[in-house]
């Protein structure tokens, strides 16, 4: 036995604990979509815990149509150069070659995202094959479990990106947390039926029943536009929020970004929410669900 401080050691990288570990560090924070270095700087100045580098924000992807793909590596490198916080980037569902490129860029997290045009209509990326951790979207517990069984280290609600409408994110969070509660209250026989109904791998359902919690953090994404939206998501049980179009499609992004950061921390304190919500200017316009042609949340299998 030695109690001496001595030099170590074998370093083991890319374990599930290391992959989930960064998600743990992002809790209680705001991850902001940015399309260039200037926006990345504004996001970091406003207190973002990470930025998501993408070619166009979801509202523009929705407006422009066409195929949405991984960002240009040069743009991601510019963003990495100006900010000191973690940088995430999106790849198309199933597009493992895009993921290989993003990993080679030394990005911190990959979002295998329904916001981009899917590359594979049957399979998601085998995320265990990568050292870089992945976040994936989900609309319900079964989908969340399938993504974790493929190696995702973080789950976010899909919501309906680019709408500025929080209703779908609320639906997804409520569905996921309601079913987690049901699983934790079920007896062992019921778990077999639940796994089948949810189309979720049985061992994961059994793990949730045993531990009383989902194995990776669950964040909220899709349609958040105001500090109140962030507070709503956090009170519903989300552990952090992604804000996409909601910041840089608003009239005055910097104060809104900062207000959403403060609201996410102080989500239980209405006095702070009043203070930070005041005089933020016009939020992004937003779209009602009946008025959209494409539901991005339907992408993913």
């Amino acid at each position: 036995m030695s109690n001496k401080a001595s030099g170590s050691s074998e370093r083991t990288t890319a374990t599930m604990r290391v992959k989930r570990g960064l998600a743990e560090m992002l809790k209680g924070g705001v991850i902001m979509d940015v399309v260039n270095a200037e926006q990345a700087k504004i996001a970091e100045d406003a207190g973002a815990v990470a930025v998501m580098a993408l070619e166009r924000v979801p509202a523009d992807i929705r407006a422009d149509g066409g195929v949405a793909r991984m960002s240009d590596p040069a743009m991601i490198e510019e963003i990495q150069a100006v900010c000191s916080i973690p940088v995430m980037a999106k790849v198309r569902i199933g597009h493992f070659a895009e993921a290989q490129i993003i990993q080679a860029l030394n990005v911190d997290y990959i979002d295998e995202s329904e916001v981009l045009t899917p590359a594979d209509e049957a399979y998601h990326i085998d995320k265990f094959a990568f050292d870089i951790p992945f976040v994936c979207g989900a609309t319900n517990l079964g989908e969340a479990c399938r993504r974790v069984s493929e190696g995702a280290a973080l789950i976010r609600s899909k919501g309906e990106a680019g709408t500025g409408n929080v209703v779908e994110a609320v639906r997804h969070l409520r569905s996921i947390f309601r079913d987690i509660k049901r699983v934790t209250q079920a007896d062992e026989m019921e778990l077999f039926g639940m796994a089948k109904d949810l189309q979720a791998p049985l061992p994961l359902i059994q793990e949730i029943a045993e531990t009383g919690r989902f194995p990776v953090p669950i964040f909220c994404a899709g349609g958040l536009a105001t500090p109140a939206d962030a507070a709503l998501a956090m009170q519903l049980g989300a552990e952090s929020v992604f804000v996409g179009s909601g910041i840089f499609k608003s009239a005055d992004p910097a104060p809104r970004a900062r207000a959403i950061v403060e609201a996410t921390t102080n989500f239980m304190n209405p006095d702070v929410l009043v203070k930070v919500s005041r005089n933020l200017g016009t939020p992004m316009t937003g779209i009602a669900m009946n008025d959209i042609d494409i539901r991005l949340a339907d992408r993913g299998w």
Binding site: N3, R11, T12, T13, V18, Y109
Partner: peptide, 18 residues
């Protein structure tokens, strides 16, 4: 380094029974 360099390692810590 960035996330890809994040790691686990075994430590000997002074003052802790190992």
């Amino acid at each position: 380094g960035r996330q890809l360099a994040s790691f686990e390692a075994d430590l000997q810590i002074t003052g802790i029974e190992h």
